[in-house]
Amino acid sequence: MFMWPSCSPRAKAGDAPVQCARLFKLAKDSAVKARTQAINQLKAVLITADPDPREQLAGPEESGPSQDLRAIRRS
């Protein structure tokens, strides 16, 4: 690609709205990945746990991991 001698490429300043949106997306993607990783670790712990605590934590399907964590914290 030919560029005129008077044209020189400039680096982006990094303060544009697009850059801010990119950083927010990066933070969100990282948080989602960490959340998924934590849920998977909890599931693995529950699978390998003794039957008594596992049955105590096993509740209705509606409960979800966050309510299971609250139950663990209370005990």
Rank of each mutant, 00 (worst) to 15 (best):
M1Y: 08
M1S: 14
F2C: 07
M3D: 14
W4L: 13
C7G: 08
C7Y: 15
R10W: 06
R10K: 15
A11V: 09
K12F: 08
K12P: 14
A13L: 12
G14C: 00
D15L: 10
D15E: 15
A16I: 02
P17H: 04
V18F: 13
Q19K: 12
Q19F: 14
C20L: 13
A21V: 11
A21N: 06
A21E: 08
F24S: 08
K25A: 13
L26N: 09
L26F: 10
A27C: 07
A27E: 10
S30I: 01
A31R: 07
A31N: 05
V32C: 11
K33D: 07
R35F: 05
T36A: 12
T36P: 01
T36E: 09
T36H: 08
Q37I: 02
A38D: 03
I39Y: 01
I39K: 02
N40A: 15
N40P: 02
Q41E: 15
Q41R: 15
L42T: 01
K43E: 03
K43F: 03
A44C: 04
A44K: 08
V45R: 01
I47D: 04
T48G: 05
T48Q: 12
A49H: 06
A49S: 14
D50L: 03
D50T: 02
D50Y: 00
D50Q: 04
D52F: 07
P53L: 01
R54I: 00
E55M: 08
L57M: 03
A58I: 05
G59K: 05
P60M: 08
P60L: 09
P60S: 13
E62D: 10
E62S: 13
S63L: 12
P65A: 14
S66T: 13
S66L: 12
Q67M: 09
D68Q: 15
R70V: 04
A71I: 03
A71E: 07
R73P: 00
R73I: 04
R74S: 06
R74C: 02
R74Y: 03
